[in-house]
Amino acid sequence: MMTSRRLLQLAVIVVALAYPIVTSGSPVWQRLGALVLLAAISASAWNIVGGYAGQVSVGHAVFFGIGAYAAVVAFVHLDLPPILGAPIGMLLSVAVAVVVGVPTLRLSGHYFSMATIAVGELVRVLSSTSDWLGGAQGLGGPAMPRTVFDLSFVSAMPYYYIFLAVLTGLLGLTWWIERSRMGFYLRAIKDSERAARSLGVSAGRYKLHAYMLSAAFTSLAGSLYLCMFGFIDPESGFGILLSVKMVVMAALGGAGQLFGPLIGALILVPLEELSNSLLGGQGAGITFVVYGAIIVIIARFLPSGLLSLLERRPHPGTKAAPANPNPASGHAD
C-alpha cells in the first residue's frame, strides 16, 4: 500500500518534470503544459478562500488583473523587467483584499458572490478609463526581449518550470495551512460559521487572512500571465469570465481539496485548447457547445467535483462519509 502510493507519487513527479522535454518536438503541447500550470496556480489560489473557507468569490479577476497590470506598469512606466512588478502587485492585491474583504466577507452565501462580481466589474470599468493603465486599449510588455529577466521566451519550457515551481510552492503552503490551526478553523467556519463563532473562533479574521493570501497568489498568477503573453487589457485582466473560470476549475476538480484545482485545470485547459484547435476554425462556436456540455455532465453526475470519485472508493457501503484518519472512531457504536 505504502510503496504503491510512493510509486505513484514518484511517477507524477517524473511526468511533471519530464513533460516539457518529452513534448519539446511540439511547441503547442509544450505550451499547453505551461497553460495548465498557470490556470492551476490561479485556481489553487482561489481555492484557499473559495474552497477551504467556503467564501465563493466570483471576482478574483480583480487580483489577477492587478498582478498583470503591476507587471506591465513596471515595464512601461519604470522600464523594469515586468516580473519585478509581481511583488508590488501582490502587496497591492493584499491591500485591495482588505478593503474589499472587510465589508463583503460579512455577507453570507450568494450575497458575497454577487458583491464580488460587482467589485470585479467596477474595477474593470475603472481600469478602462485610466490612461495611465493604457485605457481600454491595454498595455503591451517588451515587444522583443531585452534581457532574460524580461522572461520573454520563444519556447514554453522556461515558463513551464517557473510555473511548476510556483505551483509547487503554493500547494506546499496550502498543504501546510490545511494541517495548521488555521486550516482547522477554516473548515469549521465553512461547515457552520455560527457554530465556529460560538466556539470562540474569530471567523472574520480567519476568512480575511485566507482572502488576503488567496489574493496575493492570484496576483502572482496575473504577473506570470503578463510575462508569457506580453499584453493585458481590461477584459483579459479583469473580465468576469476569468473569475468564473477560476471557480469552475476548482469546482470541477474538487473545491477545498489540495489537488482539486489542478485536476480541474488538467481537464478544462486541454479541453478548451483542443476543442478550439479542432473545431474553432469552422466558426460556429461548436468549441464552447462541447466545452459547456462536458461541464454540465460532470456537474450533473459529480456535483462535488472529480476528486469525489476517489473519495467514495474506500467506503463502498457508507454514505459518502469523509475519510476518518482516527481508527478509534471505528468501534463507536
Partner: peptide, 20 residues
C-alpha cells in the same frame, strides 16, 4: 482558419499552433 475567441490569449495560442 482558427478562432481567436475574442481574447488575446487564444489569439496567441492559436497562432502558435498554426505556425508550428
Amino acid at each position: 482558419f482558427a478562432d481567436n475567441q475574442g481574447t488575446p490569449a487564444a489569439g496567441q495560442n492559436q497562432t502558435l499552433r498554426l505556425i508550428t
